[in-house]
Simulated assay, not measured.
Amino acid sequence: MTTSKQRSLAMWTLTAVVLTPAAFAADTIPVTEANFAHAETARNYNNWSKLGANEGIAHMKQLPPRGTAAPTVQMNDDTLYSVVITEVVDGQVNFSIPASDVYMAVQVVTEGGHGQHYIVGEGDYQLPVETEFAFLIYRTGTEKGLDAARLAQSKISDDSFKFGTYTPQNYNFAEVEQWTAKLTAETRGEVFEYTFPRLSKDVTDRHQWNLENANGWGGSSPEVNVANKYTNSIMLDGNSCLTTTFDNPESKYFTSVTAYDQARYLIEGVNHISSHSWQMNADDTVTVSFNCGADAINNIDTLGQDFTFTMRYYGVSQKVLDGQVSPEKTVQ
């Protein structure tokens, strides 16, 4: 049942999320290599708090806004979001995933930016969290259309959450954005793979971890047949016809291909391609085209904008983890 706390974000007017230097006090915390992941996480918590996620479930009833109006960098374009910011009680967070006939998962993201848990499927869950607050991302599948996804969202309960107590640390969020832009630019010329360590103790390369947060905050640690794997292509020419052909990824749930602009935001008027509807080749491979015309197989038109594309494997297969499927490396 939907409660009075839940927030419906059917009309996304996100002017409140835009942050200006005048909004910051002089005593803000400077951003460093050591604290960037925490600061970027605080920025995301803060953006979603402005949208009501610190008071109730913030339901996104449409696909994400394009460009920097989005509250989070590189949002997926293949599910609807519902977001919760909750206090962790006795070291644990409790939540439920309702029964539905579409894909639904919950990711629990700590204040350090770690996707500590990724849970798929109906049930009641009680899980440990290593920080004082947690950010829960409900992803609801659109494979049966937006109305079916919205109906599934309406069944999410918020009775187990402790709302209203989160306050972000006083980072200079304008400086966080500058760091994010710098780190994102660093990866435009190379294929980028995310690892998303689950816990703070699992970070072995601080710079790599910062790159992951800058390019796609809130991603999951890959787990065969459960959680997802993400990879980014290099920056590609938006005025050239490009294609990539790859073996069927055989993701347990689905696979998607999404184009992003140079800052890793969705492009206005550009749609993703997914295994829910893509056309297979006769030899069980998949070809995705970019800017090759409406008649090209599985075409994504970036409308002249240079772009990267991200592969998302929902319930990643072992062969993808083993590197046997790599569309981002074979585009030409």
Rank of each mutant, 00 (worst) to 15 (best):
K144M: 03
Y125W: 04
V129G: 01
Q262A: 12
D205K: 04
R43K: 15
D158S: 07
N170A: 13
S221F: 10
Q153F: 07
D78R: 02
V203G: 01
Q62C: 08
G238Y: 12
K162L: 12
N213W: 04
E132L: 05
P71H: 06
F135R: 01
I137G: 00
S233M: 10
R206C: 05
R43F: 15
F192K: 07
A37Q: 03
P197G: 04
A227T: 14
I119N: 02
T32H: 11
R264W: 00
G323R: 10
T244E: 14
S275T: 14
A149D: 04
V320E: 02
E130W: 02
S160H: 05
P327G: 04
I119S: 02
D124F: 14
F254Y: 15
S317P: 04
L211P: 08
A37I: 01
L63T: 12
C241T: 11
V108K: 00
T165E: 13
G315K: 01
Q208K: 15
A16C: 09
T68Y: 07
S160Q: 11
G145L: 13
F163R: 06
M75D: 05
P222C: 10
G238I: 12
D77I: 06
M280V: 10
V120E: 01
T165G: 08
N54R: 09
D158F: 03
S200N: 12
Q116V: 02
M104F: 02
A26C: 10
S256V: 10
P98T: 07
M75N: 06
Q74M: 15
A282P: 12
A185D: 11
K252P: 05
D77L: 09
H59P: 10
I300M: 10
T140C: 04
I300W: 03
Y45S: 06
Y45K: 09
H114V: 00
T187Q: 09
G115R: 00
L136I: 03
G145Q: 13
R139S: 01
M235P: 05
S326Y: 13
T258W: 02
D261P: 02
I234W: 08
A34D: 15
K319C: 05
T255A: 08
V93R: 00
N213M: 13
C241I: 13
I97E: 05
R139L: 00
I97F: 09
T140G: 02
Q169C: 07
D283P: 11
K155P: 05
E212F: 03
A42W: 10
M11T: 15
V89P: 06
Y118F: 09
R139Q: 04
N213D: 09
R198P: 06
V320M: 04
W209R: 03
V84W: 01
Q169E: 13
G121P: 03
I97G: 04
G216A: 07
I267G: 01
A296P: 15
N210T: 08
E55P: 05
A282K: 14
L236C: 11
